[in-house]
Computed example of a mutant assay.
Amino acid sequence: MKKTGWTLIIAMLALAAYLILWPVPVEPISWQAPAAPGYTGPHAANDRLSGIRLIDLGDETGPEHVALARDGKLYAAMASGNIVRMNPDGTAQEVFVNTGGRVLGFDFDAADNLIAADAMKGLLSIGPDRAVRVLINTVNGDPVRYANAVTAAANGKIYFTDASTRFAPKDWGGTFAASILDIMEQSPTGRVLEYDPSRKTTRIVARGLSFANGIALSQDEQTLFVNETGRYRVWKIAVTANDLDVTQGSPQAAVLLDNLPGYPDNLMRGLDGRLWLGFAKPRNPVIDAMSDKPLLRKVTLRLPRALWPVPKAYGHVIAFNEDGTVTADLQDPIGAYPETTAVTETPERLYIQSLHAKGLGWLAR
């Protein structure tokens, strides 16, 4: 019995030492998560997203970003690295291009080049001839580690987010794993960048964001809307800002939507001045409770991944005006369509984007 007792004690000490001392890649920052609002007010619980229909994508998964181009075709970025082109009803699917990485967002410029934020490659330009060019993958000698979302302005300038300067998806097991590490660490290293094709220059518009994600321009193209996933909010940032640290306060940056009920992912311009936002996951009370406990977050990352407090599936997308008024809220509490990242709105349909879905979701308008 004594031998068994000592064996148990040694095993428990070894486990405790592992949970406390084993190295992990994050250095968590203490912060105070606001009390979650729950599903109330403009986000009152509903099932308006539960009737979603699917376009079969064959072997493809993860239509993370979807856009309707001037050629009348839908383009969708897949987990395989393919950008698939199809008719709006899902027929005539073909691989337009494979970037060899993972495109998380794209837009079309005035010359119909597809401008892609590739999490593995940087900012890309893909011509109508399907030729792929790297526009930028460094800023002032610093790598663009996590190109995430992009929007092209009428004047030719391109704005995109670099979600994290700490965790590159190509080094940390992909985009989802890298995002978890960055959000668990909470070091606000995300930034907004501007690329000027006419001068071939890149500058930092703003920094200090906890996982900079979706981005969209205002109708007058003087303001950028930017999702800060790790802090559950949406910013308004002036396009004229230069190397602005949003954590320091400035009249050029303000929070438009705060303390949201989930992790905001992509942003898309819709019809009639609307912007659409998708929540990849809902808030998790365990994660919020650990916000001011950095050591506990380190311990959590030493657990098997199956025990990490990854939030449950919950479908949720919203539309809002540029003044922050929420005009639509669609939810699926069951989460049958996983990780609803945003909405592409056309006169006939709402296409629902997703990180990992095996089809492209849509609703009739």
Rank of each mutant, 00 (worst) to 15 (best):
D171G: 04
A163D: 10
R365S: 06
G278Y: 08
G270P: 02
D220M: 07
L209W: 04
R166L: 14
I10E: 01
E221D: 11
P28A: 08
K236E: 12
A328C: 01
G361K: 13
P143M: 05
A238F: 00
L301R: 15
F108P: 02
K293T: 07
Y39I: 00
A33V: 07
N148R: 00
A364K: 13
P309W: 05
L257M: 11
R302T: 01
I215S: 05
I318L: 03
G51I: 13
I83S: 05
T61V: 03
P261Q: 07
R207V: 01
A153P: 07
Y351D: 06
L209E: 02
A45I: 08
D265H: 03
A342Y: 05
A178G: 15
Y18P: 00
F225T: 03
A33Y: 08
W276Y: 15
V255W: 07
L209V: 04
N227K: 13
P63N: 00
F279E: 01
A163C: 13
R233H: 04
T61Q: 00
L296F: 15
R233N: 02
L257Y: 09
L21F: 12
P338S: 00
L74N: 05
Y39M: 14
A238Q: 00
R70M: 12
T344Y: 11
W308C: 08
S187M: 11
D323W: 08
T229R: 06
A212D: 11
R269G: 04
N155F: 08
I10W: 02
L49T: 08
A153M: 08
P347Q: 15
P251F: 01
W362K: 12
V234D: 03
T325L: 01
L181Q: 00
L123D: 01
V326P: 04
A36R: 10
E185M: 01
M86Y: 11
A206K: 05
P285R: 13
V24K: 10
G214R: 09
W31I: 06
K298A: 02
G38Q: 09
V343L: 13
G101I: 00
L123P: 01
V150R: 03
V255Y: 03
V103W: 14
D272V: 10
N113T: 03
V299Y: 04
E348G: 09
M290W: 08
G273R: 02
G359D: 06
A33C: 06
F225K: 15
F96I: 05
K3C: 12
D107K: 03
A45V: 10
M86V: 07
V299L: 13
T201H: 09
R53N: 09
Q331E: 12
I55S: 01
N140P: 06
G122C: 05
R130D: 04
F106E: 11
A357I: 07
N148D: 15
A45W: 06
I287V: 13
T327C: 11
Q222N: 11
T201Q: 12
A16G: 14
K281W: 02
L296H: 11
S198C: 04
I237G: 08
E228F: 14
I215T: 15
L224F: 00
R102H: 15
R283A: 01
N321T: 07
T240E: 10
K121R: 14
L296A: 12
L307I: 05
